[in-house]
């Protein structure tokens, strides 16, 4: 069995992704909540993985619930391991109501993310589209993602192009202990798509999120992540973990 070379022009595919998908929705921790307030947040913390060792992580996030049928989000991510990511999203949503009762909302979740691994001189664009459902205690999403990556310093004599990884299943399943209107909450999540990374589909990331409203405007947010590898090979081992704490101002 032979496979054709799937290298394509990096610039061509960038233009294609942007024009076809347009703005997309982010899948950040804040996006999981049915928040109706514009907000900005920042968080920082400690992370460890077997490649980078101990390092710091930082995120700045803006959440834009434009109206009941549309919300957007921007997330900037940086680490002291010299990796960065920018994710932008726009998310049409369709509230489900019957006899005046709220039954959650269906979401068309799309996302465009630029991943910059400056330590390796490699960058990539990841894009995903997923259909989701969000209600008081659950948030689930499943869809399709792809990534185009390339080394930044390809020399003029190289015939290499970008490395396309298509056919990635993106998923997100999160359960909450409290409804979204609660002044505090705790959730448990498994996903391959965070605010800073779209992993391959068989490398799930396990996340615990929480928040506490300190006042009508200030929210304290905390999260913890764990990423094992090799689960789908029936030979799992620990890869990395992360803990963050941050604050969000809700207008």
């Amino acid at each position: 069995m032979n496979h054709q070379n799937k290298n394509i022009g990096f610039t061509t595919l960038v233009v294609l992704i942007i024009s076809v998908l347009g703005l997309s929705s982010s899948v950040s921790a804040h996006n999981a909540y049915r928040d109706t307030c514009y907000s900005v947040g920042a968080s920082g913390g400690y992370a460890y993985n077997i490649i980078y060792g101990h390092h710091g992580v930082f995120d700045v996030n803006a959440f834009l619930p434009v109206n009941p049928h549309f919300e957007g989000e921007i997330n900037l991510h940086a680490t002291t391991a010299n990796t960065y990511a920018v994710a932008i999203s726009a998310q049409p949503k369709f509230p489900i109501r019957r006899n005046g009762k709220d039954y959650g909302e269906i979401l068309m979740d799309t996302r465009l993310m630029y991943e910059l691994f400056l330590r390796n001189r490699i960058h990539g664009l990841a894009a995903s589209f997923a259909v989701g459902y969000r209600w008081d205690y659950i948030y689930v999403k499943v869809g399709y993602g792809l990534r185009l990556a390339s080394m930044m310093d390809l020399t003029s004599h190289s015939t290499d192009n970008g490395i396309l990884e298509p056919h990635n299943l993106v998923y997100h399943a999160e359960v909450f202990v409290r409804p979204h209107t609660s002044p505090w909450n705790l959730s448990f999540c498994v996903t391959d798509m965070t605010e800073s990374q779209m992993e391959r589909m068989f490398t799930p990331i396990f996340i615990v999120n929480s928040y506490v409203d300190l006042s009508p405007h200030w929210r304290l947010e905390m999260s913890g992540k764990c990423k094992p590898v090799g689960i789908a090979n029936l030979a799992p081992s620990f890869f990395g973990a992360e803990g963050k704490i941050g604050a969000r101002y809700r207008f």
């Binding site: 990796t83 990556a149 068989f202 890869f239």
Partner: peptide, 14 residues
């Protein structure tokens, strides 16, 4: 099937 993590892939590539 699963591959290695994204971070390991890029570290080895470079």
């Amino acid at each position: 099937i699963a591959t290695v993590s994204l971070e390991e892939t890029y570290e080895l590539m470079s």
